[in-house]
């Protein structure tokens, strides 16, 4: 390889940052394109991460430092891909800022959008002050803004908001919300030890290592109450407190609870702002809007298009470690692809 090959990376979230670092180590020249002012994606908005509650900003700092100190890596922030055309063995890319790039391979790390919780009208997000989302709570944990009530006595977490919900257009499970709800429930209980904290879940999907420990800790140490049933309706009483309705499906009876704060666990959906990119590249996509992997078991980082690779939550909800591993795998796949091309 005489000249460094350009790899265009669409999205400078955790997957993009990790892949850029690996690709640079392999001798390529990664070019990150990020629509926001700051790289880091959703990690910017999160306070602590499950299951060990590591600080999100420290993880992000480590991801960023490897990229920022590397002269081989370019980052274009506040930019998006306006036009992308396939050439013989490369892609011609024009950014919104007018910058033109020729890239030998393209890595899609466009991630996900957090489900817009106001679309679940019955939960009253944006209508009742005391209804907030997982992201709002995380932002408050991070020290930004305030929560709508000073000393909540009763707090509820609603799992599966916009997930496992065909009417919301998302049949899929967003995978990380169960464990995030348990993490946030523990954290808020530590802040307000006298509050009664409920989690309304359909199934507790504690699939990862130490997740079940968190669930046990939530029950045993913090007395968090788990109600198996999806919240059906939220309203406001005279005092402005929330009246929450659900079925306790284990008791086979409807339940009602008055809450001071209700946290909606908004799930992951396809990134709306990437629609034009997906369309221009004619990427294969599933009904849920997440990108398809050409071979999800042995070749998970390829889409069906030549020279196009995928990593992270753009192919479906993922945990952060999964995303990082996929970014590493994508770097390997790109290395293999470009070497084969050279030969």
């Amino acid at each position: 390889m005489n000249r460094k090959k350009n790899i265009l990376i669409a999205g400078a979230g955790p997957a993009g940052l990790e892949a850029a670092y690996r690709l640079s180590m392999m001798g390529f020249s990664p070019i990150l394109v990020e629509k926001e002012e700051m790289p880091g994606g959703h990690l910017n908005k999160w306070d602590r991460l499950f299951p060990e509650r590591e600080a999100a900003d420290e993880i992000l700092e480590r991801l960023l430092s490897r990229v920022k100190n590397d002269v081989n890596i370019k980052i274009f922030t506040s930019s998006y891909i306006e036009q992308i055309n396939e050439l013989n063995d490369s892609y011609n890319v024009i950014l919104s800022t007018g910058v033109t790039i020729i890239a030998e391979a393209v890595l899609i790390t466009t991630g996900f959008d957090l489900f817009n919780a106001s679309r679940k009208e019955e939960y009253g997000y944006g209508i009742y002050e005391r209804v907030i989302t997982n992201a709002d709570l995380e932002s408050w944990f991070k020290g930004n803004g305030k929560i709508p009530v000073e000393n909540p006595q009763s707090i509820g977490f609603v799992h599966c908001v916009g997930s496992r919900d065909e009417k919301a257009g998302n049949r899929h499970c967003s995978k990380v919300c169960c464990v995030t709800a348990v993490k946030q429930a523990i954290e808020i209980k530590e802040i307000f030890p006298h509050a009664t904290v409920y989690c309304f879940y359909m199934d507790l999907r504690m699939f990862g290592r130490h997740y079940e420990d968190m669930y046990l800790e939530a029950q045993q140490k913090h007395g968090i109450r788990f109600i198996r049933g999806r919240v059906s309706e939220v309203s406001e009483n005279k005092e402005g407190r929330l009246v929450v309705k659900a079925e306790d499906t284990l008791a086979g009876k409807p339940v009602k609870a008055t809450m001071d704060l209700l946290v909606l666990m908004a799930g992951m959906t396809r990134p709306a702002s990437s629609a034009s990119l997906y369309e221009q590249l004619d990427l294969s996509m599933d009904e849920d809007g997440f990108l398809r992997q050409s071979d999800a078991i042995l070749n998970g980082q390829s889409n069906h298009r030549k020279g196009i690779f995928v990593a992270g939550a753009c192919t479906g909800p993922k945990t952060l470690p999964d995303t990082i591993h996929e970014a590493d795998s994508a770097a390997m796949a790109i290395y293999e692809y470009l070497n084969r091309m050279t030969v």
């Binding site: 009763s154 409920y198 109450r225 109600i227 306790d248 008791a251 009876k253 409807p254 339940v255 009602k256 609870a257 008055t258």
Partner: peptide, 8 residues
């Protein structure tokens, strides 16, 4: 038949 969690 409703369970009132406020009284739980």
């Amino acid at each position: 038949s409703r369970i009132d969690l406020d009284k739980a």
